[in-house]
Design a protein around this nucleic acid. Structure first.
Ligand code: MN
Ligand code: MN
Ligand code: ZN
Ligand code: ZN
Lengths: 138, 138
DNA sequence: TTTAAATTTATAACGATTCTAAAGTAGAGT
DNA sequence: ACTCTACTTTAGAATCGTTATAAATTTAAA
């Protein structure tokens, strides 16, 4: 439909051919107001719902890995058998709801400034990730 | 040898029978001055070096899961195909060296106080984990 | 010593992810 | 529009960390 040409450009500009599979995945991931978190399985289910011609699991993995590579997605550090991705690639932190197994964004106002005072020679900081695990109180 | 009775007590007091496999793993994990981080594979290799009669991989997994359950070990939240454990069960944070694939403790002096200002109704905080990924600078 | 429950073990099963290699497609050059 | 080649998709196999199974062994209570 409408926004396809935007995604076609986005893909082209990063050296990825705008295939119909990639465009569909782009629309699902990026054609919305709010960012969100997902696993490959979530994505696979969502795709099955919105399209008749199925996209193979290998392609979903290939595409998500390519998007992560290009910086369109972020992988969240969390110990789970599944990998969690985030369409919000800005620096931010997370609650992880252990009951729902879902990530919730913490924005800058939600967390005091994090200061790393230690440094190691020959090493530089690549990322700072805070994960706050939460669960039902009762 | 010497400290066995301490570990035997520790195991008994937590409802775990003090088998020779568990005692060997206890000695390897806890009979030392400094705490450390390890994966099951690390531990398996270490065990093979210090003992002639091999401990099956299933027993290693069972034992580590039991120790985690009892609070003798902590699992670190990190996105890796392997699970990382910590014999330091106190609250502390980590550097993760992406080149060496190894965790390095950050103590309280190394990180400014972390303040979580957001809370969700019906939910309580279970843990706060900061992971600072580092890599070679050049 | 007897006996039930806990533990160990080898091996199978599982599940997320990656690999393979064959078939299909996109786009540059003509 | 046609050709050609590199890129992409795909089904299915392979990988690998972890968990499940079920039989043999060990622990420890009675
Ligand atoms: Mn992990
Ligand atoms: Mn993970
Ligand atoms: Zn997020
Ligand atoms: Zn640690």
């Amino acid at each position: 439909m409408s926004n396809n040409h935007i995604f076609i450009e986005k893909l082209r500009s990063s050296g990825l051919r705008p295939t119909k599979q990639r465009i569909k995945i782009c629309k699902l991931l990026f054609d919305r107001k709010d960012t969100f978190h997902f696993t490959i399985n979530d994505l696979s289910d969502s795709l099955r719902k919105i399209t008749l011609d199925k996209i193979s699991l290998a392609t979903i993995y290939n595409t998500i890995n390519a998007f992560k590579e290009k910086g369109y997605l972020k992988e969240i550090s969390i110990n789970s058998n599944k990998t969690y991705f985030d369409t919000n690639v800005s620096n931010h932190h997370h609650f992880f709801d252990e009951n729902k197994k879902e990530l919730i964004d913490l924005n800058d106002n939600d967390v005091g400034k994090i200061k790393i005072k230690k440094s190691l020679p020959g090493k530089k900081i690549k990322s700072i990730e805070l994960l706050v695990k939460i669960a039902n109180s009762n």
